[in-house]
Computed example of a mutant assay.
Amino acid sequence: YAYTPYEIRNVLSYVHLGQPDVADELLQGLLHDRRPLEWQVLAEVVHSRLRFPRYLGDMPHTWIGAEYGRTLFGMLMREDDDALSLLPGTPPSWVAGNGLAVERLPTAYGTLQMQARQRDGVLTVGLGKGLRGGTAVKVWWPARTMPKT
């Protein structure tokens, strides 16, 4: 069995369908297939047998690497026509504990600087300087449960 990790582009399809848990499951499954795991790269072709002597293509495969970057950005933010959406595909594990930080990410609304953390059911999102004044911001609750307050 072999496949091409170009399918990483489907992760954002699940994000846009409102299924971030499925998106994260697919992303984690793809990342599990890095060969060798410590290299942090995906080959153009991944075989289910670890030492299968067949075509692997480019390593690292830059098209897949670009899609990986685009996928991570799309899970952290989305540039909608009327607002900047934050955390649209972010799994709860990304904001747990110390949370996450984004520095100097260019967007259509200016430069995004953001910190996000969830503890005890409280989601805290902080924005730094860089977004243009008047930018509407939407925040997606990572667990997809409606907050009580």
Rank of each mutant, 00 (worst) to 15 (best):
D82E: 09
L12Y: 08
R9Y: 14
I64V: 15
T111M: 05
A2K: 03
R54T: 07
E44P: 04
T71G: 07
V139S: 06
L84D: 03
R104I: 03
Q40P: 06
T111R: 06
V139A: 07
R54F: 14
V15H: 05
V139K: 02
D24I: 04
K129C: 00
L84S: 13
I64Q: 06
R78C: 12
L105H: 04
L131R: 02
T145L: 06
T135P: 04
K148P: 03
G89S: 08
R78M: 12
V15G: 03
H32Q: 04
T124K: 04
H32K: 05
A101R: 08
H32N: 00
V46L: 10
L86C: 15
L56K: 11
V22C: 00
L87V: 11
V11S: 05
D120M: 02
G74R: 10
M114S: 01
Y3P: 06
P106L: 03
L72A: 05
D24H: 13
V11C: 11
V41S: 15
G97V: 03
D33Q: 12
V139N: 02
Q113C: 04
L131M: 10
G57P: 06
L100V: 14
D58N: 11
G18K: 03
V125Y: 00
P91D: 14
A143S: 14
A143T: 14
W140D: 06
L76W: 07
T62D: 10
E25I: 01
V137E: 09
A96V: 13
Q113Y: 00
G134M: 00
A83Q: 11
Y6K: 15
W141F: 12
P88Q: 14
L100A: 09
D58G: 02
S48P: 00
E103G: 08
H16P: 01
L112T: 07
Y55C: 03
V125H: 04
D80L: 10
A66K: 13
A83C: 13
R51E: 14
R35P: 04
S93T: 13
A116R: 03
T124L: 09
R54D: 13
Y1T: 09
G18M: 02
Y55Q: 12
T111G: 01
